[in-house]
């Protein structure tokens, strides 16, 4: 905000308000991370487009109706949505500088995220054991890649959370750790958003 004001006002006092670019790290990081999220969004868009093109290319193998279970996907959705709530509460406790609460909420977020990944891996291994692996058909290739890429992102998020919890334990809530927690929560909410699309396009539309 401060820099914006400087850009638009122009008076003889401007010299006292020349911003030091490095005091602006927070807003720069947030903007840059939005940019990154947009690139990730396009990566997912590409995978969604691929799935849309290939989801009927079953080549005699199972179609989406044969293999998807809405109940499992719904449970995954609930877990992930709930983990977004706990993540948000974690950031709120960071705003209020309550260290123990941060650890608690992010630990809970971690458990939820980990169970999401566990359920997804269970679903994948089930498919592979039934002979419906990713090399069975183009449809299955695109399914495993789209959903797996999301799962991989969640896994990265889990590692990131461990790092963040350690950082908060070691150095408390500093300017840097606060910024990183906010950025992490953006990442986590973004994954939630992508999952909503996966749930709708892959699972809901897949079984109708």
């Amino acid at each position: 905000m401060e820099t914006l004001a400087v850009h638009h006002t122009h008076d003889s006092h401007a010299d006292t308000r020349v911003p030091d670019p490095h005091q602006d790290t927070f807003s720069k990081t947030i903007l840059g991370f939005w940019m990154y999220l947009m690139t990730d969004c396009i990566l997912f868009a590409t995978l969604f487009a691929t799935y849309a093109v290939l989801h009927n290319s079953t080549f005699g193998g199972p179609s989406s109706r044969d293999i998807f279970s809405l109940s499992i996907a719904s449970i995954e959705t609930m877990i992930l949505l709930f983990s977004s709530v706990t993540c948000g509460l974690g950031v709120l406790s960071a705003v209020h500088s309550k260290k123990n609460q941060i650890i608690l909420w992010f630990a809970l977020t971690f458990v939820l995220g980990a169970s999401f990944v566990a359920i997804e891996l269970h679903e994948f291994s089930h498919l592979v054991l039934e002979g419906n692996s990713w090399n069975r058909s183009a449809f299955l290739s695109s399914f495993f890649t789209l959903v797996g890429t999301h799962g991989l992102h969640v896994t990265v998020g889990l590692f990131w959370m461990i790092v963040m919890i350690v950082q908060v334990l070691l150095s408390g809530i500093t300017v840097a750790t606060f910024r990183r927690l906010v950025v992490f929560s953006m990442f986590w909410h973004f994954l939630d958003l992508v999952w909503i699309f996966i749930f709708t396009i892959v699972y809901l539309m897949g079984v109708i």
Partner: peptide, 10 residues
């Protein structure tokens, strides 16, 4: 996988 292969629906 079979995204761009000639067979298996790629």
């Amino acid at each position: 996988m079979h995204f761009f292969t000639a067979g298996f629906g790629g």
